[in-house]
């Protein structure tokens, strides 16, 4: 009879115990769109590659999450919405990574891959528990150090190297690879387009 009671207790407590064990984990993997030209191919007004601003192949990648009510990936609509009513960055979710692009960097694609490899080498997730919100993920590449960024220094336009955006996603539902790219109207993106991307959360209303 003791054994029977133990069995009953086990049966009764098992569901409760298992309650605490179960957890679903969704993974969203950020991925720079791998093509040539790409978000790292932008040039300044003089036609100089922005990547030339970086010395010793060092840079920082600032990842922001911009709150947006949008559900569709449409550039002009995104910009219009971010002007009004706005798509504010969630400051507590900002992450900054110091990266070193290693290896042969003969093309912008090589740079993109080197930066991505440097980001992934740490193995640390960007967010362990993302909010259940619709956001646009932005990765801004700058010559400013992470230390400066984390002290609150605003990003300078003359220090931008590249910028990429995701489509609006609901982090409460989305799962899988999330492409980061910089929509551009020309073959190579320009500093204006990089700036719009980098300051999307601070665009003035028209």
């Amino acid at each position: 009879m003791t054994r029977a009671l133990a069995l009953l207790a086990f049966a009764a407590l098992l569901p409760l115990a298992l309650q605490g064990c179960g957890e679903d984990v969704r993974t969203v993997q950020l991925d720079f769109v791998d093509r040539d030209p790409n978000a790292f191919s932008c040039v300044d007004a003089a036609g100089e590659r922005l990547l030339n601003r970086a010395r010793d192949a060092r840079a920082s990648v600032v990842v922001d999450f911009l709150r947006t009510p949008l559900r569709f990936c449409q550039v002009t609509e995104t910009i219009r919405q971010c002007r009004d009513p706005g798509c504010p960055a969630l400051p507590e979710l900002r992450r900054c990574y110091d990266v070193v692009a290693e290896g042969p960097l003969e093309s912008d694609l090589d740079v993109l891959r080197a930066v991505e490899a440097s980001l992934r080498s740490s193995g640390e997730p960007v967010l362990l528990d993302a909010p259940d919100e619709s956001v646009i993920v932005r990765a801004t590449v700058t010559t400013q150090t992470c230390a400066a960024v984390e002290e609150g220094a605003p990003l300078g336009a003359d220090q931008l190297l590249a910028c990429a955006l995701s489509c609006p996603v609901d982090l409460g539902q989305y799962e899988g690879v999330l492409d980061l790219d910089l929509p551009t109207t020309l073959e190579s993106c320009t500093i204006q387009e990089v700036a719009v991307c980098a300051f999307l959360d601070r665009l003035p209303p028209e």
Binding site: E23, R26, T27, V126, A130, V137
Partner: peptide, 12 residues
């Protein structure tokens, strides 16, 4: 019926 808590991890 139980839906375990779900979290979203963002990574590179």
């Amino acid at each position: 019926l139980h839906e375990p808590p779900t979290r979203t991890e963002v990574t590179f």
